[in-house]
Structures are given as structure tokens and as C-alpha cells.
Amino acid sequence: MRAAIEVIGLRKRYGRTVALDGMSFTVLPGRVTGFVGPNGAGKSTTMRVILGLDAADEGSALIGGRPYRSLRAPLCQVGALLDAAALQPSRTARNHLLWLAHSQGLGARRVDEVIEQVGLGAVARRRAGGFSLGMRQRLGIAAALLGDPPVLLLDEPVNGLDPEGVVWIRGLLRSLAAEGRAVLVSSHLMSEMQDMADHLVVAGRGRVVEDTSVADLIAAASDGRVTLRTTARTEAMEALARAGATVAVQDRDTLTVSGLEAGRIVALLGANDVPFSEVAAHRASLEEAYMELTRDAVEFRATTPRDGTATS
């Protein structure tokens, strides 16, 4: 599968500040890629470089194998939402989209379509300056969808949206990915990615800290530990230890098992007729996994990693 976006070794400094320090990742079609990291990790700069707005000192960013600035009708290949507030307040929503459409050789019909798609039909002829943040966000998304592009780039799209809007945008992005588009969504809050992204690129200090699927990241952070609740503590410990697991007693009827998958534990206990009331794979939250990753990246110090998920 050909990568929709390739970011290769981007470096950029602003004076003495290093904004990008070898940022490299790829975005594949057909899934939502979350681009997360703390503020200042270089997410927005990376997106601006991808869109040809800022120039990198080193490295390159390619869309479908070509630099953005060589694209003929770029909005038909990449739709982007950078800063939803960045529009001239006195222009109506429809006219804002209209000049964008004209810049891509598109007509007014396409404008009306995307306006309906994002649910701004009723306010299309009102001045965008009077829009709420949520409405502006929708207008920005309409602009991104205008060229029906195979690649979408959205910088913090959930910012300022009410819960209903968040649900709407999740569904929209998932359906866009399901249509086979590549979707890159940045956020500084990992929790937003929980039910939205399939894949994650975690950035810290201008480079990629982790490039993984959401499931793998959670599994890694979970350490494979399983919590077992049973009244037959001793029997359970024996059976599991025989199978090679490490078992630790947590309290009177709770054990923590590591070295065995939850399914295997259930099978073992069943085969040995050990009663149990609960087997729960310890699932670290995405947030925990992320904190653990980025803490190292942010603090940039050579302490032992994974010394615990607890952070103050």
C-alpha cells in the first residue's frame, strides 16, 4: 500500500529553538492516524511543512510521492484544517468556500454540497465572523472536504466542539477512513484519540517517540498483567505457576498474573476446575500509555523507562 503522506527526517529551527528534530512517519490510507504529543512537540509545524506553508531546514514531506507545492489542485488531493478561526470575519461562510472552490477550478455546486454535509446549510449566507467556535470548526472541515480529497489533515479538530460535535467529528473521520482515505488528526489530548484513531504517531520534542497501532500501544502499556479474582487462591496459584506464569498476591481473593494471556488463564483454570469470579486483562488507558511515552520525550532524561505508570 502506497503511503498517502510521507514525512522524512524533517528538521527545523526557529532561532535557537528546535521545532523539528528528525520527524519521520508515514500515513496510510484507509485509517485514521492520530498525531499526538504535548504542546510544542512539533505537530503543527509538521503539518505546516506537509502543506508547504513552512519550509523545513532538512528533510521532506510528500503527498502521494510529491511535494505539496508541486500539486496542481492541492485541495483535491489534500484537505486541511489548520486554524478554524483563520478566516475573514466579514465574508459569508458560502463565499469563503466559494473562493476556495474557484481556486481549485470547482464550482458553486460543490460548495453547497459540503455546506450541507457539515450541517451549515442554515447559516451559509451569514458572516463567518459571527460564528461560534464550533460552527467555525465545521466551516473549516467543509473547506477540507471541498476537493473530495483522498488525504485529510486536521489540526486539533475537536477543539471547542461540544460533546455532540465531538461525536459527529469522530463518526465523520471514521467514515472518511472507511472510504479508503488517509486521515491524519493531531491532538495534544490522547483521550480524544481513544475512539477515533486506528494508528498513532506520538511526537515529542520534534521527533516521533512511538509509531504504533492503538491496540499495540495499550497492550504494551498494560504489560500483559491479568487480574484474577478467585476464592481458591492456592489452587489457582499452583495451576498458573505450573504453566509458567508469575503470580503475585494482591489481597485475600485477588491475584495479579503476568506471563499469560487472559484467555489462556481462563482455559487453565477451567481445566483444573479452579473456580473464579473474574479474569480481567489490565488495560492501561490510552492516556496512561501516552503519559508514559511522552514523559520521557518531554523531560528528555535518561532515567529508566517504564518504571511505573504512576505519575504525579
Binding site: 486541511a80 489548520l82 475573514q88
Partner: peptide, 13 residues
């Protein structure tokens, strides 16, 4: 307003 970014993203030349 920052709209210049939209302009140059839409028309990179």
C-alpha cells in the same frame, strides 16, 4: 486573520 495559510495551502504557487 491567518487566512493567508488557507490561501497558500489552496494555491501553493
Amino acid at each position: 486573520t491567518g487566512m493567508i495559510a488557507t490561501t497558500f495551502a489552496a494555491m501553493p504557487r
